[in-house]
Simulated assay, not measured.
Amino acid sequence: MSEHVVISREQHAHSAWLPVSGYQHAAAQMAVPVAFAELSHLLGNFVLGFIKQGDTFQLVALLGIEQGKNLYVHPENGRWIGDYVPAALRGRPFTLGKPQASGDGATTQDPVLCIEKQALTDLETPAAEPLFDTQGERPELTGKAAESLSFLHQRHQGLIATQQVTNALANVGLITQWPAVVNTTEGPRRLAGFYAISESALKNLDADALSHLHHQQALPVAYAQLLSTARLKGLGQRVDMFARLTAHQEVPEDLDSVLGSYGDDEELSFDFDR
């Protein structure tokens, strides 16, 4: 696991960072948390579901059917194989950390920007980008570091809002255990530990409950999850394709056209609309 350090003006005003390429860091993720703002991009690319965390549920996109294997990351080169990269997997090597106590003992309310320690370097390193603009009286984050902070805060707020929506769905009894099955050439594979919207419970909600979910903007999430189950077939196809890849059997040269791709030469932006 990568070690992160908090970025500060005092310590890193003259530091730089090296961009990270590929998604090998996500190669073992079976599911990833997603936000309401991503629904339009997620729906055509992923199966959506819920996982239980304590007494609450979290909306996730399924990336595989077993722990330790992400079917959207190429096993040989770490390239993303899909049309959309969930926001939770973008922003590396930056992330948000817990609020920090200041010198007078006060604690900031907002999460702070952190960076993977191994990505830090000096300004003379080729291809490195500065963390701060030091032209003014006070160093300020610059370039993609500043964009990262904005994006990560946006994603953080999006996940909070999505959790409120998910809670609303759970509170009216719509989230239930999901006996999902993915069909592969090796036979059916059952997904364990995931939850889904109960279509029958949704149909039987009374007018007051429906009105409440409407005002909570929860109905789009419910319908998106139900519609996304059509992607289970595609998930099975990915299982079969990855079995061939790892066995070094012949696979289509245009693998991206079969499974979808996120272009290597297309720069990732810190925006939910990508």
Rank of each mutant, 00 (worst) to 15 (best):
L235Y: 02
Y23S: 03
F194P: 02
H14M: 14
G82M: 01
R189P: 01
N204P: 11
L169Q: 00
T107N: 13
A106G: 14
D265V: 09
F272W: 05
P188F: 01
R231K: 12
L63Y: 02
A88L: 07
E186Y: 00
E266W: 14
W178R: 02
A119I: 14
T121M: 06
P111A: 08
E38D: 07
S15T: 08
Q100I: 15
H248P: 02
Y84R: 07
Q217T: 11
T121A: 08
N183L: 04
L210N: 13
Q11I: 05
P111Q: 13
V239Q: 00
G97E: 08
A230I: 14
A192W: 02
T162Y: 10
S8F: 06
Y223W: 12
A27T: 05
D104C: 10
A28G: 06
I7L: 15
A16S: 11
A26I: 05
V60D: 00
Y23W: 11
V5D: 08
A101D: 15
V181W: 03
Y23P: 03
G22F: 04
S269I: 15
V258G: 02
D271N: 15
V172L: 14
I160A: 07
R138C: 07
S269G: 06
A168E: 00
V20A: 12
L123K: 05
T184G: 00
S102G: 08
E38H: 10
L259Y: 06
L43G: 05
G49A: 09
H12C: 00
N204L: 09
A146G: 05
E129I: 13
N70F: 03
Q164D: 11
Q67P: 04
